[in-house]
């Protein structure tokens, strides 16, 4: 789909090597506010691509642009080479919105039947799809339960099942674990792994770096509507920090002298901790010795490789959850 204002041009016929999803230079504005500024993404076959960013970074807007729920100002979106607004693209795309977008007064299976029909399914195909989805979401025993009576985790799973009732080859998941307990989150991860095992390509938005690290093959870090880094976790860390490691230290007390000392040593205060970046692990010894020489009392210290949180902090100067 080529987009310029409300104009859309259908792309040429797809080729067999077409990517499951290709977004090029997507721009979305809401009035004077530019929510997405030139985002480009390529989703490979069978891949899980994470969109990691804080709230308001533009993750959901990118997803909504792909499924046609916001009108982009510019950019192209292709699903297996087809225009995103084409019937073929709609059949290939599945969307799991952040909201619990199900009918509360319908049962689980009635919800799935309804959304299946909206996607053009009928008869035995529809019945099979509903059965498969109930099984996938582990909701067989809740098939006749009203959606409004399900637990939070079950509602989330039903919400996911409704998004893939038509068995799409590309699934866009917009923070599917928001507000769920750890046990339900594990169940949801299993559902996602199950989909991946069947070759489904996934775009997964989250502001939880642990989820991105655990589920995603590649991660795009998005902030203020722009992708500021893209790659595997190792790529991102290496590009940001090279081979450097992080030292996290906690000193007794919270005096201004400690903060001043940390700053002099090139570190930064993060909550109760001080963080330092070192090239070689042997530098830890020198760091600790200096602290002791300057009269600081060390309470705790650890050495570790930088995380995605560190990468985000490094790239934006802000923490992921700011």
């Amino acid at each position: 789909m080529t987009l310029g204002g409300s104009m859309a041009t259908v792309l040429a016929a797809p080729v067999s090597t077409a990517l499951p999803l290709e977004v090029t230079s997507l721009v979305v504005s809401f009035g004077a506010v530019k929510a997405v500024e030139g985002v480009s993404l390529q989703l490979r076959a069978g891949e899980c691509l994470g969109l990691l960013g804080p709230n308001g970074a533009g993750k959901s807007t990118v997803i909504r642009g792909i499924v046609g729920r916001v009108l982009p100002d510019a950019g192209t979106i292709a699903v297996f080479g087809f225009s995103a607004s084409s019937k073929a693209a709609r059949e290939a795309l599945g969307w799991i919105p952040q909201e619990l977008a199900v009918y509360p007064r319908l049962t689980s299976s009635e919800n799935l039947f309804s959304f299946g029909r909206y996607h053009g399914l009928s008869g035995s195909k529809l019945a099979e799809a509903v059965a498969w989805c109930l099984d996938w979401a582990a909701l067989q025993d809740k098939a006749d339960e009203l959606a409004k009576n399900l637990s939070g985790g079950m509602k989330r799973r039903l919400n996911m099942a409704a998004g893939i009732i038509h068995r799409p080859r590309v699934v866009l998941m917009d923070e599917p674990t928001v507000g769920v307990d750890p046990q339900s989150r594990i169940r949801i991860f299993e559902m996602i792994e199950n989909l991946r095992a069947q070759g489904t390509s996934i775009v997964y938005t989250t502001h939880y770096m642990e989820e991105a690290e655990q589920l995603c093959d590649r991660i795009a870090i998005i902030d203020h509507g722009r992708i500021i880094a893209l790659g595997t976790k190792e790529d991102l860390v290496h590009n940001a920090f090279g081979s450097r490691s992080q030292v996290t230290a906690r000193f007794a007390g919270t005096s201004p002298e400690i903060a001043a000392w940390v700053e002099r040593r090139g570190g930064r205060i993060s909550g109760p901790n001080a963080e330092f970046s070192i090239e070689n692990s042997t530098e830890v010894v020198a760091l600790l010795k200096d602290a002791a020489d300057d009269g600081l009392e060390l309470a705790d210290v650890s050495l570790h490789r930088p995380t995605l949180e560190s990468v985000f902090l490094h790239l934006t100067g802000r923490e992921l959850r700011d």
């Binding site: 909504r64 795309l93 952040q98 909201e99 619990l100 977008a101 909206y118 996607h119 053009g120």
Partner: peptide, 13 residues
């Protein structure tokens, strides 16, 4: 409000 409308409109409807 619930987002169901968006989901429906993202299908064939």
């Amino acid at each position: 409000d619930s987002g169901t409308l968006d989901r429906v409109l993202s299908s064939h409807v």
